[in-house]
């Protein structure tokens, strides 16, 4: 397909990009906008490494064609960090609990958690597990991730 110009709203700012309309959003975010948060893991919506927030909802970006995004606001892991450089409660909690080993799946966990906490301020453990279901972690950091989301809920409530 011919490259087309799109205006994407990413992390609070409009970005004009030229892309084949069928390009998955993941490659536009990584290669044209230079973002590192969303990661390539499978390209089949099976692992969650490429998770972003679309309109506040966690959604994989590896099969989401750029022409289907429209004016929906996209938030990546970069966009969770506040403009003053301070961390979102989810990011704070991940650091505080040292919830990562290799960290490759951390993006998926953080974005699903951020999406969850928008809807449920104090989720219970089962709700957290369900919210993270789409994210695969191979290092076995699940326990820490679950605790980190609980901690993020506390931080969010107090902050």
């Amino acid at each position: 397909m011919e490259a087309t110009t799109f205006t994407l709203h990413v992390n609070g700012r409009p970005h004009q990009v030229q892309a084949d309309p069928a390009t998955p959003l993941l490659y536009v975010l990584r290669n044209q906008l230079g973002l590192n948060g969303p990661k390539f893991g499978c390209g089949m919506q099976q692992c969650g490494a490429c998770m972003v927030l679309v309109d506040g909802f966690a959604h994989p970006s590896c099969q989401l064609q750029v022409h289907r995004v429209g004016a929906a606001p996209i938030t990546t892991l970069e966009g969770l960090t506040r403009p003053d450089g301070s961390l979102h409660p989810v990011q704070q909690a991940l650091v505080e609990l040292q919830a990562a080993q290799c960290g490759y799946c951390l993006n998926g966990v953080a974005m699903c958690a951020a999406g969850l906490l928008r809807q449920y301020a104090r989720p219970d453990e089962q709700t957290i597990r369900n919210a993270l279901f789409r994210v695969l972690c191979r290092c076995g950091t699940h326990e820490r991730y679950i605790r980190a989301v609980q901690r993020a809920a506390e931080l969010g409530a107090s902050g």
Binding site: N36, L94, V95, Q98, A99, G103, N107, A110
Partner: peptide, 15 residues
């Protein structure tokens, strides 16, 4: 703490 975890949550180019 492992300092790289802060870099990971800030989506720095780690990998």
């Amino acid at each position: 703490r492992r300092e790289e975890i802060e870099r990971m949550v800030r989506a720095a180019p780690v990998y």
